[in-house]
């Protein structure tokens, strides 16, 4: 599929401090890419380099397959750090400014977008009097002017209440599914993006330390059984016969066997083992939570 964004060893130094180090990623058309990292990991800096607010110290950016970024950037909508608007103007006037700047479309698109982001009925209310959720949605609405093919959003759900998060999430899902907008979205919380993105990149201390797709994440986070036995060799062969579709793994240096992909009752397995004269010390069901997974990946770095 067509590459929307390609970065090659993107690096940013402030003085002697390395803030983003050799980030190479690629986002394909139709992706919702979740860019995850703790505060200060370098998410905003990466996004600023992509959108042209700051110059990379080294590395390359390719947008829509072109190195000439000023052309590509017309087709990118951005909300970086906080949504930016003229505070004493209404939502519509702010949208008008962004529409005028990019034009090309009929003026109707302003009202259509306002209703899409749920700000149709705010009237003349000044943008500075909006709630945080409304401001975020206005920011996204303004980013949608100029009919972008690629949306770059920096922590768009930061500080929103659960309802606001749901609204933004469903708005983004809608844009992605119905308009084919590719989305790059950063967050410091993996859980917030877990029901949205189909690909993830984890950045820590300026380096992209892991990239995976939603299906990979699912296998990494699926629940499994830990069975502790006295004779692991025999237990393995017995279990292999008993549940042929499950994946068995001996945890090195322990007497624990991990059983992945077994969906029967744990009691069945202990029964089989007991029948075969294998002593079961314990059976525990464990599940890796997204957040735990994130912490386990990021935690090792510090």
């Amino acid at each position: 599929m067509e590459d929307v964004l390609l970065t090659n060893k993107l690096t940013k130094k402030y003085g002697s401090r390395l803030c983003v180090s050799e980030v190479s990623m690629n986002i394909k058309k139709g992706d919702i890419y979740g860019f995850i990292g703790k505060n200060g990991a370098g998410k905003t800096t990466t996004i600023k380099m992509i959108s042209g607010l700051t110059k990379p110290t080294a590395g390359e950016i390719t947008l829509f397959g072109e190195k000439n970024l000023s052309k590509g950037r017309c087709k990118v909508g951005t909300v970086i750090e906080a949504p930016a608007f003229v505070p004493h103007l209404s939502a519509r006037d702010n949208m008008y400014i962004q529409w005028k700047l990019l034009s090309g479309q009929h003026e109707n698109v302003i009202d259509e977008t306002l209703s899409l982001v749920g700000l149709k009925d705010v009237g003349k209310k000044k943008a500075r009097d909006f709630s945080l959720g409304m401001k975020q949605r206005l920011g996204i609405g303004m980013a949608l002017m100029g009919d972008p093919e690629f949306l770059v959003l920096d922590e768009p759900v930061n500080g929103l209440d659960p309802e606001g998060i749901v609204q933004v999430r469903s708005l983004l899902k809608d844009l992605n599914e119905n308009r084919g907008v590719t989305i790059f979205i950063s967050s410091h919380l993996l859980n917030e993006l877990s029901r949205l993105a189909n690909r993830y990149g984890i950045i820590n201390n300026g380096r992209l330390i892991d990239e995976f797709s939603i299906s990979e994440l699912e296998t990494r986070c699926k629940s499994h059984l830990d069975i502790k036995v006295d004779d692991t060799a025999r237990a393995l062969s017995v279990l292999k016969e008993a549940c042929s579709n499950a994946e068995l793994k001996l945890v090195e240096g322990t007497d624990t066997i991990e059983v992945h992909g077994y969906d029967g009752r744990p009691g069945e397995l202990t029964k089989i083992l007991a029948v075969n004269d294998i002593f079961v010390e314990s059976v525990t069901k464990s599940k890796v939570d997204l957040e735990d997974y994130f912490m386990s990946v990021v935690g090792g770095e510090n």
Binding site: K71, G72, R73, Q98, L101, M142
Partner: peptide, 14 residues
Amino acid sequence: SHGTMKNIATKGFP
């Protein structure tokens, strides 16, 4: 101060 410079500067204008 409003941050609106970002809205212009990200659009590829010189």
